[in-house]
């Protein structure tokens, strides 16, 4: 088993699915010519391997999603790439009013088997290019929302998303593209809607997803030295939401923290915390804590940008507060 990057894992998933199914096509802004394979390089080389099936398209996100949806209705399996998740706002009508509603509103006559891939993230890109909208996306019936945190999950879940008969919004993260992890050479597909214990522990349950999994694992390694064991749950899919492993974990640890990169107010963490207390109130010895991004439009300045984003140290601080009963 070789260590490969998250980016390479995504590309392998795309290659395998395009080889398996001639109806899979990839459309996106600057995914062929620019820089030899896209702004973030995920599709590099695929256009040559699959002539005519990987195409640069106009910068018109409402059309990328809408034309993709029409193609999906007609039997194509499009993977539509939005260069960053910020640009999904331009396509919001298509995502919410059309993609997510087709199957139900037309009483099961129309399926929309399409994937919308898009990275969240930041990097001195200021407020319009440093956002994440998984809480909005996860609130839409009809849509599935997948957000892998490791190369292994990225590959298995992208393959599942392409094969799924429902529309999947597949969120990636700029800071994850270069991260490495073990990915088997043999083919595998992971189920959508199943969360996973990424690290077992006795003292405190952390529920998280996406890049914050990486920061939480860093925090767990630091705290282990002090004798505090975190049990880390990676949601992997945000809709449908599988909280069963988290509830099982809390039965053992009796404490929970939700860690997310997005805003705290009306964040997905609020939904998760509310659901946990509804279903596991008697298992809890402490209020559920939230670690989240600060609620300001992302500033450009390096120090201010860093101040708004949660890192491992924020997770560590939240864990210490809880272990010291400072709540």
């Amino acid at each position: 088993m070789a260590e490969i990057t998250y980016r390479e894992a995504l590309k392998r998933a795309l290659r395998e699915e395009m080889t398996r199914d001639p109806n899979v096509v990839i459309w996106g802004e600057d995914i062929v010519a620019y820089g030899g394979g896209g702004a973030y390089g995920v599709t590099a080389g695929l256009a040559k391997e699959f002539p005519g099936r990987v195409r640069d398209v106009p910068i018109a996100e409402e059309a990328i999603v809408g034309v993709g949806l029409g193609a999906a209705m007609g039997g194509i399996r499009p993977v539509c790439e939005l260069m960053t998740i910020n640009f999904a706002l331009v396509a919001w009508d298509q995502i919410v009013n059309h993609v997510a509603k087709q199957h139900h509103m037309f009483n099961r006559q129309i399926q929309a088997p399409m994937v919308i891939r898009s990275p969240a993230g930041w990097g001195r890109t200021a407020s319009t290019h440093s956002q994440t909208f998984e809480n909005w996306l996860a609130s839409i019936p009809g849509l599935k929302v997948v957000y892998p945190s490791t190369p292994y999950d990225a590959k298995g879940l992208l393959k599942a998303s392409i094969r799924d008969n429902d529309p999947v919004f597949f969120i990636e993260h700029l800071a994850l593209y270069g991260t490495k992890g073990e990915v088997p050479d043999e083919e595998y597909v992971l189920p959508i809607g199943v969360s996973e214990v990424k690290r077992p522990g006795r003292h405190l349950t952390v529920v998280t997803w996406g890049r914050m999994l990486v920061e939480t694992m860093k925090a767990a390694r630091t705290l282990e030295v002090e004798g505090i064991e975190l049990e880390v749950i990676d949601l992997r899919t945000l809709r449908p939401l599988d909280l069963a492993p988290a509830l099982e974990s809390i039965r053992k640890t009796n404490r929970a923290i939700v860690v997310e990169e997005g805003f705290r107010t009306v964040g997905l963490g609020a939904e998760i915390a509310a659901s946990i207390q509804e279903m596991a109130f008697n298992d809890l010895d402490a209020p559920i804590a939230r670690v989240a991004g600060l609620e300001v439009p992302m500033p450009y300045a390096r120090n201010l940008e860093r101040a708004t984003i949660p890192f491992a140290e924020d997770v560590i601080a939240a864990v210490r507060r809880m272990m010291e009963k400072k709540y």
Partner: peptide, 11 residues
Amino acid sequence: HLPLAAGLAYA
């Protein structure tokens, strides 16, 4: 619905 029509035409 206009993009959807273009997509069906692509299919």
